[in-house]
Each structure stands twice: as C-alpha cells, then as structure tokens.
Amino acid sequence: MIWAKRVVSILLFLLLWELVALSGIVPTEYFPTVPVIGRALAGLVVSLEFLGELAVTWERTLVGLLLSIALGLVLAIVAARYETVRRMLEPLVEMLRGLPPPALVPLSIFAFGLGVKLYFFIIIFAAIWPVYISAANALSAPEPVQVLTGRAFGCSVWEILLRLSLPAAMPEIFTGIRLAAGVALLADVAAEMLAGNGGLGHLLYDAAFTLRTADMFAIMLVVGLSGLILNLLVAASRRFFIGWHVQLAAMGEKT
C-alpha cells in the first residue's frame, strides 16, 4: 500500500516535470524532458567509463566513512573514559565542526596533492563529528544500573565501558553513523567537484559546464540514488549489529 502511494507520487512528480519541460516556460536545452534524461541515464549506465567513476566515488565514500567511524569511536571511547580528554577536545571540536569540509579542499590540495588521501581527509573531517559526538554523549551517560551491575561482577572500568556501555550506546552511535554516511557522500562529491580527478562530482561539474544538461540531471539522479542506497546499507548494518535493540524497542512499544 505504502509502495503504491510512493509510486503514484513519484509518477506525478515526473508528470509535472514533463509538463514544465514541454510547456516551454524554461528552454528545453536547460530543462530536458523525462525521456531525454532517461536516455542519457541509460547511455551512462552502459558505459564502462561512467561505471568506473561511480566505483571511484563509492570507494572513496565507503573507505572514508569507515575510517571516520573507527577514528570517531576510538576518540569517543577515550573521551568517555577520561573526562579531562573530553573537556580538552570540546572547544576544538566545536570550532572544527563549524568549518565546511569543502572549504578545506584548496589548502588540503597543498598538503595531500590530488590523490586518494585528499578525499579521505575531507571525508573524515566531515563525517567524524557526528560519530564522535553521538558516541561520546551516549558513552558518558551510561545507565547507572548497568554500571553498578558491572561493578558488582567485579569488572574493571575499561570492561564496563567496552562490554556494557558500548553495546548499550550502539543505537545512539548508529544515529550518528547514519548522519555521517550522508555527510560523507556530500563531502566526497563536493571535493570531487572542487578538486576534479574523477568521481561523480567531477563528471557532474563537467556535464554542467559543457551544458550537457540531460547528462547532468542523469548524474544527479545517480548521486541521489547512491545516497539512498548508502542509507539502506547503514540501516541494514544497524539491523545486523543491533537487531536485539530493535526487538526490545518493539516489545516496549504497542504498535
């Protein structure tokens, strides 16, 4: 039922697009009709070159995201263990978080060149904060009962942190990871637009500058779909890692 509604809604959207394109309110070379975009998309999808660029973007985004998650978690665990570290990092995190990651691209090119390190740096810079903040918050405020139980079993502070608080914090951490995934793709595409050197962002910018609008919209569609798939991947891994929590929450609710 919900799928039927979605399909109807998307079809209406496409119809509206088609009407605008055909009406001639905006020049068709800037606003191609749906079939033209569809043909452009089909042409792209069968070209090995395009698939290669798509793979480049995905590889950068996924590796960058995994690095961000690993670094963010380690940092958050240390910060949760030592309150001083947490407070030490606080103003720095506030300041760095306010910086738009793409703004770092020009200077990072000096530091890292145009290689893969550049993209990883930009992605980590963008995606580490949601992970760190959600994990640090969740780990620093554990359930007192859990901590007391752990202590009663004679667990050390580290054991309590890693074996009790960390699993308990997983749902919140995954909220941060979900945010980070979106941000990682965004940062990667932006970096590719600015720095060039392959990837969907580069193709998109190229298509726009050479006024291949049908290609441009088709690439945008691919970028959007990539975001959607990335989101689904995070949701699936969330179910894989913390399915127990989802079941518990379902039992608690009366849906």
Binding site: G201, A208, T213, M216
Partner: peptide, 13 residues
C-alpha cells in the same frame, strides 16, 4: 538524498 552541492550546476544554468 541529493547532496545540496549537486544543485550548484543546476543553479548555474
């Protein structure tokens, strides 16, 4: 899910 920056080329056109 479209990164907002992907809108820059559209806006430019």
């Amino acid at each position: 899910p479209l990164p907002p920056i992907a809108m820059v080329p559209v806006a430019m056109i």
